[in-house]
Design a protein around this nucleic acid. Structure first.
Lengths: 238, 238, 238, 238
DNA sequence: GGTTAATCGAGACGGTACGTCTTGTCTTAAC
DNA sequence: GTTAAGACAAGACGTACCGTCTCGATTAACC
C-alpha cells in the first residue's frame, strides 16, 4: 500500500456500490492529451477499473496492463501508487463495494451473532464480492503488500468490532468472562472462511446453527441422555 | 513469493522425506540424449524439482520453466502431465513431504485432539511445509485444477480421519450425539487455518487451549459466578 | 549481430530491391496461431519490415516494437536474433537493397575511380539508401553491435575491393608504388562521406573532379605559372 | 551507448576546461525553493551537467532527466531552451571544452598542416572530447536541431580557418591556384573523420604522413622508376 | 529381431505481462 | 511572469513465463 492515505474499511454487510461500477466494460480508453490530470481523478479511474475487473472476472484476470488500458491511466502511474497488483485490487475492491460496518446489538448476543453471520455468509456465497475476498486472501499468501494492507484496512477492523460486541455480552453475563473474544472470532467467522477457502463441505444455515450451538452449549456430553450409539445427525460429509 | 514470514503446515504429522529432496541445488540439468525415457523416471524428476523449489523458495518462484530446467524435463512434457503449475506444485509437495495421517486414540478425546492440534500447529508454524500449504490454499482460489486436486488428495482425507475419531468419542458418550463432527473440524483446524491465512493474531498454545475450552465447555455463562463486570482475561487483541 | 550466419555484404552500386519492399505499409499484423514457424520465414518477415521502415522513415522511427507489429513477429524473437535495433536495421538494409559489387576495370584507373565515385555519390544523394547508410554510421557511434557488424559486413569489403583495383593500377605503373591504397580510399570515399555526414558543403560533380585532380596531380605548385594572387576558383564555402 | 572504444576529437586545440567540470558526481540536486532563478545561472548549471555527463559517460547516457536532476533544473526549463537532447549536448560540450581555434602560420603550409592535423588527431584519439564529437556527429544524422547547430557553431568555423590558411599558401605560390581549399579540407580532416567514424583502419602518424604526401606530391606515377610490379609498401589493410 | 509407433527433449515462436526509463505536456505553487 | 516541482500519458525497452508447435532421436512394443 505504501504511503497513501489509508481508506478505512470495515466489517460486516458488504454491498456492491452502484450498478455500473464498471463504467464501460468495453475496455475502451478515454484517450486524452498527454498533460497532467488531477491525481484524485486518476486514482478514482484506476480504482473503478480495478474493482470492476476484480468483481466481474476475478483476480487472475486483473493486471496492471488491463487496468491501465481500461482506465486510460498509464502503467507508470499505477506502479507509483500501488506496489503490487494485489494492493491495487484491494483498494479497487473497497472503492466498488459498500461495507456496512454496523454490528447489531439487540441485547441478545447469540441472536446478534446469528444475524451477523447470516449477512456475512450471504455476501460470501451469493455476491461477486465473496469470491473477490477469497481470492484476495489467497493472493495475500504470496504478496506481502496485499497481506499488510488487508490486515490494516480490513480484517483487523472487523475483528475489533466483533470483540467489542462480545465484551459487552461478557459484561452482561451472557458470555463467560474467561473466554478470549478473538478465539471466538476464529471459531465463528474463521470456521466459515475455512469452508469457503477449502470447500470440502458446503456453507449452509444448518452449518451456522451448528457453529453457534457448539460454541454456546459446548460439545461435551453433559449427561447420559446425550449419549447415542451411532450417527445421530446427518453429517454433510461425503 | 518471497518476503513473506514463513508460517506453517497441515493436520497430522508431516515430515520432510529425505534430506536431499532437492537433487542438485545448482540448477544443473543432467543433459541426456533426445530419446524417450521411462515415464516414471521423468515424473519423479519433475516432482522432486517442483517440491524442492516449492519448499525452498515458495510457490511464487515455482514455474514450469524452472522445473523443466532443474529436472532436465521438457516443458512440453510437464504440460502434458499437469494442467497447471499449482497442480504440479501439489504433486511435488506430496512427493517431498511424508504425511503421517495417523490420528491418536488414547480414549480421551480432548487429549487426543490436543495432541493432534499441537502437531498440526508445529508443522504449520515451524517447518517450510507450513508456508507451502498456505500458498497452495491461496493459489487454489484461482486455480481450479489445484483446488480439485487439493480436496481430493489432501483435505478430504484429513476431514474423514478427524470425523472418524470424533464419532468414536460420540459413541463413548464423550461428545454430544447431536454434534456434527465436520463442524467441529472447522472450529478447530479451520480456526487455526484462519489465523494462519489472515495473521492478525498469533497462533499460540494458549490459542489452542482456548479453542478446545470454548468448544468443550461452551462459552455461555452457566451461573452468576461467571459474570464479571470488565475484561477479565488478557486478550491478545492489540 | 551475434552468432548468426553472416550475410556477406559488398562495396559499390546499391539499388533498392523491388518496389514493394515494404509489403504492407498499413502496419497490419498477419495474425497466426501460436505455434512455431520456420525460422527462415520469421527472419525474412522481420528483415523486410525493418528495411522498409528504415528506408521509408529513417532509423529514428525504427523500433523493435514497430518491426514486431508490422512483421507479425514477437519482440522476444527479435531480441533473440538481433542484439540491438541498429543490428536489425543493418540486416534489414542489406535485405532490402541490392549492392552491385562490381568495381569497373577498363585499364584507366582515374576513369574507373571516377565512374565508381559517381555511382556512389548518386546512391548516397539521390536514393533512400543514402540517408539510411548515413544514419547507420551515425548510430554505430553509440551501438557497438552495429559498429562491429557494419565493419564486418559492409565497409571492410568495400575497402578491399578498392584496394584491389588500386594495386592493379600500381602494378601497371599508373599509381606510385609507395602510395598506401587505404589512405587513398579515405581521401576519395572518405572525403565524400565527410561532406555527407557534416554537410557544410554540397557533394557535386565538381567536388568529385576536385578530389581526383588534387590526388592525381597533387596540390603543390609546380612552377610559377600556377601562382595566382587571389581566389582562383569559386569556392562553395558560404 | 557505453562499451565503445573511445576514440577522439576535433581540429584545432581543444582542452577540457576546469577539472571539476562535473560539479558533483554524486548526481545530487542542490534542492532550492520553487521560485524563479536568473536565467544565466540556470543555463550554466544545465550546461555544466550536460557537458560532464557527455564527456564522462557518452551521449547515449545523456538524457533530459539526468541533466535536470544533476543540475537542479526542471525538465520544463530544459525543453524551453533546447529543442533536443543533442542540441543541449552540443552546448554542454562547448561549455566544458575550450577550443583553441588558432591555426599556425609559420609560412610553411605543409608543416603547418602537419602540426594542425597532429593536434587534431591527438585530441580525437586521446581525450574524452574525441568520442563526444564523434557521437555528436552520429546523432546529428537523426537530429536536425543538432545538425544545424553543429554546422553553425562548429564545423563551418573550422572550415573557414583552414580555408583562410590555404588561401594564403596559394597567394604565396605554395599551393596551386586552381585548387579548391574546401576540397582539401575534406581530403585531410575529412579523411581522418572517416577513419574515426568507420574504424576499419587505425589513425596513425604514418596515416597523416600519407595524407599530406598523396595530396602534395600526387599519387600518379611520374616516371618509370615509380613503377613496381607488386605490393611495394606495407599496407595496413587486414 | 527388426520394424513401427509412441514418447520425449530441444527449442523456436506468438503472446502477455512485468517493471523501468525517457519524452513532452500540463498543472500548480512558489518566488 | 518565469520558474521549480512533479504528475501524467505514451511508448519503447529488455526480460520472464506461458502454451503451442515442429522436429529429430530414442525407446518400447508389436509383429
Amino acid at each position: 500500500m505504501s504511503g497513501r492515505p489509508a481508506e478505512s474499511e470495515p466489517p460486516a454487510a458488504v454491498r456492491t456500490r452502484g450498478g455500473p461500477s464498471v463504467p464501460d466494460g468495453s475496455d475502451a480508453a478515454p484517450r486524452r492529451g498527454r498533460g497532467r490530470r488531477p491525481a484524485e481523478q486518476v486514482r478514482a479511474d484506476a480504482l473503478r477499473a480495478a474493482g470492476g475487473i476484480l468483481l466481474a472476472e476475478g483476480l487472475a484476470d486483473l493486471t496492471f496492463d488491463r487496468v491501465a488500458q481500461q482506465a486510460g491511466v498509464s502503467r507508470t502511474t499505477l506502479h507509483k501508487w500501488w506496489p503490487s497488483i494485489g494492493a491495487l485490487a484491494l483498494d479497487g475492491y473497497f472503492h466498488s463495494v459498500e461495507d456496512a460496518l454496523v454490528f447489531p446489538d439487540t441485547g441478545d448476543i447469540r441472536a446478534d451473532l446469528r444475524r451477523q453471520l447470516d449477512s456475512f455468509v450471504h455476501i460470501m456465497t451469493e455476491t461477486p464480492a465473496g469470491r473477490a475476498v477469497l481470492e484476495l486472501i489467497g493472493r495475500a499468501q504470496t504478496d506481502r503488500y496485499l497481506a499488510d494492507a488487508y490486515r490494516r484496512l480490513y480484517s483487523s477492523g472487523r475483528r475489533a468490532l466483533a470483540e467489542e460486541r462480545l465484551r459487552r455480552a461478557q459484561e452482561l453475563g451472557q458470555v463467560r468472562g474467561d473466554v478470549d473474544p478473538q478465539t471466538v472470532v476464529d471459531q465463528l467467522w474463521g470456521a466459515v472462511y475455512h469452508r469457503l477457502l477449502v470447500p470440502d463441505e458446503p456453507v449452509t444455515r444448518r452449518f451456522v446453527d451448528g457453529l453457534l450451538a457448539n460454541l454456546f452449549d459446548g460439545i461435551a456430553a453433559r449427561d447420559a441422555s446425550d449419549v447415542r450409539p451411532s450417527a445421530p445427525v446427518a453429517s454433510s460429509s461425503s
